[in-house]
């Protein structure tokens, strides 16, 4: 129990539970099942995007991908256009979205590596360019997703009265895979080593640039994937479909116990943090309070969780 409490990510689950109970208190316990279903359905997107962001942030101070929202927006448009409302073209559409994300990830890495631009600014500049591409490519795009694809992304299997979103189960499996990659593969170990001390990693034989390349490419790829899935879930693409994931992707990573200083990553925490943020939004919406107050409360709660999770300075 003590060991469990010492794990930083436990706080994100505790936070999610507290907010959930708070939300139920308002409704008097009504709609708990529906809320759980909704929470998982939305949290899974944060987890997919957050996983990419987590690998990037784990590379060490300064590494972050700010191009994710633009990436997601463009990928959603690409997926919808390629699928063209036709169920047969779904795999092709997903492949195209992944490709779009991958290209963006590689472009980000090239800016960082070849031009030596700090990642924050490189990915930000890239996101400006992607946005323009998206605006010009996706202009007037009104294509609906193929019905089969839209149904799949919204598919729920009722288990004991609660609808279990199939996609959430898939993403949980994906998270387990990501955890294995992180701890048990040469790539994952290399990411953790680079995040702790990039020079020492190089001198210990880690192929630093190859790993950084793979990481930005992976993050781009996951952005592309979420773009396609989001377009299916919300039944259509849009330029700003990914906007909330700029802050959300960073927030879930850090609230989930991954170190911003790099070298320490945490996958279960992503789920806790994503559920926490989603349930919080659902609760605030059910209060029917003004946008201003909602923003203030969201901000204060994020800070509150971080304060609760972070310890005081070590005494040395």
């Amino acid at each position: 129990m003590v060991a469990l409490l010492n794990r930083p990510w436990i706080w994100s689950f505790v936070g999610a539970a507290v907010v959930f109970i708070g939300a139920l208190a308002i409704t008097g316990g009504q709609g708990a099942g529906g809320m759980v279903t909704a929470a998982f359905s939305l949290a899974l997107f944060m987890v997919v995007v957050g996983t990419g962001q987590m690998f990037v942030i784990t590379l060490g101070p300064g590494n972050v991908d700010l191009s994710l929202p633009a990436n997601i927006g463009l990928a959603s448009a690409v997926a919808m256009k390629v699928m063209d409302g036709n169920d047969v073209l779904v795999p092709l559409g997903i492949a195209a979205a992944l490709g779009s994300g991958l290209v963006i990830g590689i472009f980000n890495y090239l800016l960082i590596w070849a031009l030596r631009i700090p990642p924050i600014i490189a990915t930000l500049s890239a996101s400006f360019i992607i946005q323009s591409v998206d605006i010009s490519y996706g202009r007037g795009l009104q294509i609906k997703p193929p019905p089969g694809f839209a149904d799949f992304t919204n598919w729920q299997v009722p288990v004991g009265g609660v609808g279990v979103p199939v996609m959430a189960v898939v993403v949980i499996l994906f998270s387990i895979g990501a955890a294995i990659v992180l701890q048990r593969t040469v790539y994952g170990r290399s990411v953790l080593a680079i995040g702790q001390n990039i020079r020492a990693a190089w001198l210990a034989g880690v192929r630093v640039e190859r790993v950084r390349f793979l990481t930005y490419a992976l993050c781009g790829l996951l952005g592309g994937l979420s773009g396609a899935l989001l377009a299916g879930y919300f039944r259509g693409a849009s330029v700003d479909i990914g906007n909330e994931y700029l802050l959300a992707s960073i927030a879930v990573v850090v609230i989930g116990g991954t170190s911003v200083a790099g070298g320490k990553a945490n996958i279960p925490g992503l789920w806790g943090a994503a559920l926490f943020l989603v349930v919080l939004q659902i609760m605030l919406n059910s209060y029917h309070i003004s946008a201003g107050v909602r923003l203030v409360i969201t901000g204060l709660v994020i800070i509150g969780v971080i304060v609760a999770a972070g310890g005081p300075k070590a005494a040395r």
């Binding site: 040469v186 170990r189 953790l192 702790q196 001390n197 020079r199 990693a201 210990a204 034989g205 070298g263």
Partner: peptide, 26 residues
């Protein structure tokens, strides 16, 4: 490579001794 400046060239501070020894051979 065996570093002389442990802090900046050698040690991975968040890791165990075993992980530090093993990184070159993963």
């Amino acid at each position: 490579f065996v570093a002389g400046d442990r802090q900046s060239d050698g040690v991975f501070p968040l890791w165990s001794i075993a992980e530090n020894v093993g990184i070159r051979s993963i």
